[in-house]
Nucleic acid binder design. Sequence first.
DNA 1: CAGCGTCTGTTCGAAAACGCACCCTTACGG
DNA 2: CCGTAAGGGTGCGTTTTCGAACAGACGCTG
Lengths: 256, 256
Amino acid sequence: MLTILHINTNDLKEITLLSPDTVLGKNRLLAALPRKDQQRLVSVSECVDIHFADTIYEPDQKIRHVYFPCDSFVSYVKSLEKRERVELGMIGSEGMLGATLALGVPTAPFYAIVQGMGSAWRMKADTFRKELEAIPALRRRVNRYLFVLLNQFAQNATCMRFHLVEQRLARWLLMTQDRAHSETLHLTQEFLSSMLGVRRVGVSNAASSLHERKLISYSRGEIHILDRQGLIAAACPCYEIDNHYYDSIMNKASAA
Amino acid sequence: MLTILHINTNDLKEITLLSPDTVLGKNRLLAALPRKDQQRLVSVSECVDIHFADTIYEPDQKIRHVYFPCDSFVSYVKSLEKRERVELGMIGSEGMLGATLALGVPTAPFYAIVQGMGSAWRMKADTFRKELEAIPALRRRVNRYLFVLLNQFAQNATCMRFHLVEQRLARWLLMTQDRAHSETLHLTQEFLSSMLGVRRVGVSNAASSLHERKLISYSRGEIHILDRQGLIAAACPCYEIDNHYYDSIMNKASAA
DNA sequence: CAGCGTCTGTTCGAAAACGCACCCTTACGG
DNA sequence: CCGTAAGGGTGCGTTTTCGAACAGACGCTG
């Protein structure tokens, strides 16, 4: 239908096999909009694949597109010096990239780096701005999402300050699994260390500990989550606080 | 006039002597609006005094009023456990409290605790919402401010993660001085420790060091800043990055 | 199969911050 | 004048993380 006709395909075999509803439903932010609005938005979007380690935004650079991840996910990263680099938040199908455009600033505040490859709906920045004006439901939704993002940043800041590397690693793995929809994750310790803002050794120790406790297994960048409940117990409460907050804010949004 | 836009926060005395609508000019967010809008906003606001240690907002509680500080200033504070409490950002005359209302969420995300007593323009939450609709310039301004806030949170998070207590203390004092418009600050170490999220001993050591370096003097909660330039050098770059960012975003806003 | 790059595990001392506790000084009110 | 409380300094051992380095293990490529 409309939706499919307007897709700009690079290689979208997967996508084209799915019904429009399914594809749309993959992004929770869009999925909560009225069907009509969803169709309109898809008609001005394209479905793209994004790849591991792609840099979607750089700080102070113009935002060209906004993204609504389906099964991909992306991290906002702040970098001061070489070693002073840390993840601020993680965006998957529950959110979107470039929401700050709604605040009237055309540039990106942080790095946005792809963590999990997959597909995302992509829209030009100008288009997004226009659709924000045209679709009140979208505007409301994006605004609420910005509120959630602010909270995630705050939670993450406090977590970084007070919680141990092991707890933070557990939390990070859980968040990643939620967005990757898979029990296997491809992540090197080197990479994890830059996400958590610690040395690789710190990750190594924390991972060993989680491994000893039979919560995960890993080998050469392949991490398996063996015991999700145990991992939740090993993580700091920030994981569940975050999830809870998202639900409480975004669900109220759809009710309103 | 334009001069008002370029006020250095350090010498606000000038302003109080200046003109009749100086009261408004004391809040930089409002001061950047067209004169007409300023007058309208004042007509639906009241000027109130807020006092040290007042709790303006609590997390998940409804926001009743928004505040535009004149010479007062307030901290956003996140608190997980008893000891796990830290300042997320500081709001003075350069910003406002309750900006998140513009995102359509009626509740406050964090504690807001008064650091420096003084006056502020106060507006009912409903009024603020209506004025946001009615005054596009206000909406643009508030949105841009939210963008800045998001950045401040990010900067602060990274700073907390990587920088030493002494650097962070120096930065905090500078930020406070900017908002207090005074060289004397009343702050106990106990209080500072909960702002920086460290032990009081940590503050004590850091303060001793700054004192030895003749950058500050202090006694029983009275802190004097002796050498502002030296303090800037002792602080992490986050201080200047923050200021720079504010200017670059908010000044563009007034141009637009 | 040799070579090389990547990923991981481990070690070391040092730095920073932690929790806790004790003691001294100053301010203030009775 | 003195008792009390608040503010601040110091010491101690512990924990966590840091920076740097080295060694083993795996997998790809030539």
